[in-house]
Amino acid sequence: MLTISNVSKDYGNFKALEGMNLQFENGIYGLLAPNGAGKTTLIKMLVTLIKPTSGEILYNGKPIEALGESYRELIGYLPQHFGYYKHYTPQKYLRYLAALKGLEKDKVDQRIDEVLEMVALGEVKKKKMRKFSGGMIQRVGIAQALLGDPKILILDEPTAGLDPKERARFRHLLSDLARERIILISTHIVSDIESIANEIIMIRDQTLLYKGDSAAICRSLQGKIYEVAMPFEDFADFRKQYLTLEEKQEQGHMLVRFYAPEQQEAEWTPAVPQLEDVFLIEYANESSVR
């Protein structure tokens, strides 16, 4: 079990994270937050890149700082902007990282083949990464995170650059892996975690806003999300009154999905709340979401 106990991080007077308490067991956790909310700070503390100013992070009851190498051995980490050498092939790159991760030498090549197959890069393992597309590079990043068969897999924006087919494949892969490990995914793409995350973690203003399963949080919006069709000329005024979640132009009118917590009009049709709605509503005042 991974425990974050009253963790804060300050940079001078700026508080990057404040009083965070979380617990992780095997399963997939989706970390949702707008830019600057503190999710990257949280992730960097979990992977030992930065140290908390106060509080502690424990793995099976022991501080991760004290565990050191034996804790890092359990981590697979994909940073938001992951580094690679353009003139390396995926095979050479993963061999280098296998050495850093302390993999047994005689099993390295077999493991590299396995993870490259997982991300559908087996056929290009000997091609230089200079020629790879953004999606292929991202898949190499995912492969390196999986290389050490980690018990804690932390992925920061893992689906950036992936096409819909690759994203679906990635979700299936994570679902398979989650049975015996902690997987924490930080993403802006709500649909990527909605269907696979056991729990959603939301951070706002450097503090924990919500932790629980996505169905429960969506239920809290039951009866507050509606759809309505309206003439184009009414739309501007409507938008000033309500938080719109989806706006679609249809023939002769606008179809609007919106949030109305306190009232209901007869012509409004109740809609099923989705995780995306929660995200847009909770972070409606954040500049990065608007």
Partner: peptide, 15 residues
């Protein structure tokens, strides 16, 4: 190359 986060979070860490 942005390699530090990956290198420093590997088993060897800052080693």
């Amino acid at each position: 190359a942005g390699m530090l986060p990956i290198q420093y979070t590997a088993k060897v860490g800052r080693g």
